[in-house]
Simulated scan of single mutants.
Amino acid sequence: MPGASGRVLVVDDNKVIRQLIRVNLELEGLEVVTAADGAECLEVVHQVRPDVVTLDVVMPRLDGLRTAARLRSDPRTRELPLAIISACTPYEVDAGLDVGVDAFLAKPFEPAELVRVVRRLIEHGREGRQAGGEADSDTDPGPGRRVPREQVIGAGAVGGDEETAGHGGG
Rank of each mutant, 00 (worst) to 15 (best):
I122H: 02
P50K: 04
L97G: 13
A36I: 15
P141K: 03
S86W: 10
D63G: 12
A68M: 06
S73A: 15
E123D: 14
R145G: 00
G156I: 04
G159H: 03
P90I: 09
R66I: 00
A83W: 05
P148K: 03
P111I: 03
P50T: 03
G64Q: 08
M59T: 12
A103M: 06
L65V: 11
V99W: 01
H46K: 15
S73M: 05
E113R: 15
V115L: 09
R149D: 13
D51T: 02
R116K: 12
D102K: 02
G154E: 08
T139R: 13
P143N: 06
R61H: 14
V58I: 12
L62S: 08
G144L: 05
T89F: 13
A83C: 15
R61N: 14
C41F: 08
V45H: 08
V48L: 07
D98A: 15
L121M: 06
I84Q: 07
K107I: 07
V45T: 10
V115K: 08
P108E: 09
V158Y: 00
C41Q: 10
P81C: 05
E110M: 08
R126I: 00
R72Y: 00
T89A: 12
L80P: 01
E110Q: 14
D161Q: 05
Q47F: 06
L62C: 09
L80H: 00
Q130W: 08
P50Y: 01
D161M: 03
R72M: 02
L65A: 06
R126V: 00
R49A: 14
V99M: 02
H46M: 13
A36K: 15
A157T: 14
L62V: 10
D51I: 00
I84N: 09
E123A: 13
L114G: 12
A103D: 07
S137Q: 13
E40W: 04
V117P: 10
P60Y: 13
V93M: 11
D74S: 11
L55W: 02
R145V: 01
V101K: 06
G160A: 06
A87C: 05
R49C: 10
A83G: 13
Y91M: 07
V44P: 03
F104L: 11
G156A: 07
R145L: 04
R116Q: 12
V58R: 15
A155Q: 13
L42T: 11
D51K: 00
A155N: 11
V117T: 15
S86I: 09
E79M: 04
P143L: 10
P90R: 13
A36C: 14
P141S: 04
V115H: 07
A106R: 14
V99E: 02
P75V: 05
T67I: 05
A87M: 14
G125Q: 03
A35Y: 09
R66W: 03
D136L: 10
R76M: 08
T89K: 10
E134V: 06
V99I: 02
